[in-house]
Design a protein around this nucleic acid. Sequence first.
RNA 1: GCAGAUGUGGCGGAACUGGUAGACGCACAGGACUUAAAAUCCUGCGGCCCAAUAAGCCGUGCCGGUUCGAUUCCGGCCAUCUGCACCA
Length: 798
Amino acid sequence: MDYNFSKVEKKWQDYWAKNETFKTDVWDFSKPKYYVLDMFPYPSGQGLHVGHPEGYTATDIIARMKKMQGYNVLHPMGFDAFGLPAEQYAIQTGNHPDEFTSKNIATFKRQLNMLGFSYDWSKEISTSDPKYYKWTQWIFKQLFNDGLAKYIDMPVNWCEELGTVLSNDEIVDGKSERGGYPVVRKNLKQWVIDIPKYAERLLQGLNDIDWPESTKEIQRNWIGKSIGANVNFKIEGTDDFVTVFTTRPDTLYGVTFMVLSPEHPIIEKYADRISNIEDLRAYKNIASLKSELERTELSKEKTGVKIEGLNIINPITNVVVPVYVADYVMMNYGTGAIMAVPAHDQRDYDFAKKFNIPIIQVIKGGDISKEAYTGDGEMVNSGILNGLSNKKDSINKMIDYLGQSGIGKKAVNYRIRDWIFARQRYWGEPVPVLHFDDHIEALDDSELPLVLPELKDYSPSKKGEAPLEKATDWVNVEVNGKHAKRETSTMPGSAGSSWYFLRYIDPNNENELANKELLEHWMPVDLYLGGVEHATGHLLYSRMWNNYLFDKGIVPTKEPFKKLVHQGMILGSNGEKMSKSRGNVVNPDDIVRDYGADSLRVYEMFMGPLCDSKPWSETGIEGAKRFIDRFYRLFSDTSKIIDKPNPKLEKEYHKTVKKVTLDFEKLSFNTAISQIMIFVNVAYKENFIPKEYAEGIIKLFNPIAPHVTEELWNILGHDETIANECWPVYDDSKTIDNTINLPIQINGKLKNTIEIQLDSSEDTIKALVHEKVANLLEGKNILKEIYVKNKIYNIVVK
RNA sequence: GCAGAUGUGGCGGAACUGGUAGACGCACAGGACUUAAAAUCCUGCGGCCCAAUAAGCCGUGCCGGUUCGAUUCCGGCCAUCUGCACCA
């Protein structure tokens, strides 16, 4: 009898829903907890693509296994529902973006259920639901009141044509990615979150979490800590000074000029002393027209202007050196000013060459007539540092000296920038503040959630005003006789996703973001799975918010995600990224229709290691289906499943239970499936299978292929779901043979094997081994024999 | 440029702390069943040499090293992918 996957899969999906098989009682503290989480999807109009089920199946396997192992498992799902596509749909159709979003969410849920995931849908959340974003706004409000959410003037990438601010990755070659319109730097009042305040915490926290080393490294680089010193350079003829940040204070004797960022305030402060102030203003203007990307283009030749009438004094040599303005110095890093040491920094070297500035070597080595020398060496021309050859020593000595003489002090800088927290868009969380003439105030808790007003037209104005500006009744309010204006930009997509993992624990709580006792019990997330692309966005923002909420005593742990894993990308069958234009997209609906959900799950887990990118294969999915049919054929034949031991299967059974259990734990699903296949192949050759073994293997396979295994469990005479059964156990002693095939090598090359008793001593097997390879030892001189117990026997001859 | 990762048959991949390289699957080939096909079951399957077997030789990106023994450890290259990029 053939296995009818579509009928059986539907049957069990209905059963799970009806019986609430996977509903979690979060208040049941009697069992150990396990919180497995997927990065929730953006409900796009395309529905699920074939990459989604990869990660979702992996977490589902863990959730189902942990449940069978006696854990109280929290395995929720929700939707990151704010975003641009819904807004564009609204602009084009005039319908509310919520309509589009709800429709897509319904599609996603249908598809997720069709794949048999064990989500507890009673915990479902959506970031665009006012009941949810009430608490996003509430967190923002705390950040604002604590000075971490700030409304500041800052340079942004402005696209006049599109009327909006663009992020760096929305710009290509100084033009907008969409439309190819020019982008300029412009100062705008922006909401930002002071994530740099948490830089050190975020850096240190990486040491305590089980994340891929590469992802930690990406975050470390992004945070970009550098240790050095701030040094004050006196402006000639004044008591004023300019502070620079340097990581190499030990090269101070080699400073021959200073470079300021074009926006440095000292320029305007001394405008009347500077004879070429107009040139500097013009240069600043040109620089501002360049996008950040253009400005930081490495291959670009150095440009700059000398400041006429402003010199600074090297504080250690008292030599007067010139000051330049150049756009290779950024206002938003360090102090916006650098001390230039052309002999030992290639950028300063290029600049010095172009402007004919002297180059003084202070570290021995290299050939500074050709290029800057950035290696280590003995300090020369360096007063108190002369003769030192250890970089660390000379830096420390200089920092000590700077401190004692009041010229400077040790300083740390981070590359991480403020998190821009506003978009001139409609479909996002309203920022819960009121702008009064002289100050900004957060809304009272009783006014949350501040719900998005309905609009007739969702498009932004040409002038770059946010769509919410059109809701004049909503925007303008009177508070105690004073006029106030609501904020009209909305929060970015990353707002709602920065704390959603907390809300799943207590999704309907109307009084707090989640019950404290529940948070204490359930946090942190034990396993978090999602793509690498979130390494510097979502994963950093979430960590910051969680750290902040920890400081406020709201959540129990600093770090939200104990263990993080990234699934690899599923590529098209041609090895390229799936895309409509390449025509290599695989639709999960088609696969489920033609092969069944279990086949898709098994195939995606069998393709290769979870974390690797791997190409889709049409024949591969057929193979997965073939295996499921074979599995069904083997275990549905009740005449062969009997209550009687079969010693020939004992070892393979215990080996399989052991390997599958350990491999699941390691998320090594491809090798676990391969072991189940091996057992099936062996069992196929037997006349009968002990019922205990059949049931054990069905349980092992259940997390991967839940439908077929529920059906088989039922066929073997069980009325209740397999999901509440206990995970099989193995007997380690039964996984080992008492004889082994020992390889025999001559000069490290395999020549033969010999069957021996386990743990045999060299004495007992030596003669047998020699006999086995006697023909090869003839006339040879034995130099050495190496026997590694149960591993190898190697004879070295000449 | 800097940082991280990867490189194994025709293909996806396996190999514990250095110990029989290629598990498992796909593709392919042969056989059984069938009037036939599909499905299923069984067998073979890295390359070279050979009619074939035995034996032999080569083989985990490349070059070298350590070792009785290296896909695994070390040094140096090459290629691909990802992240950051004038960060002082």
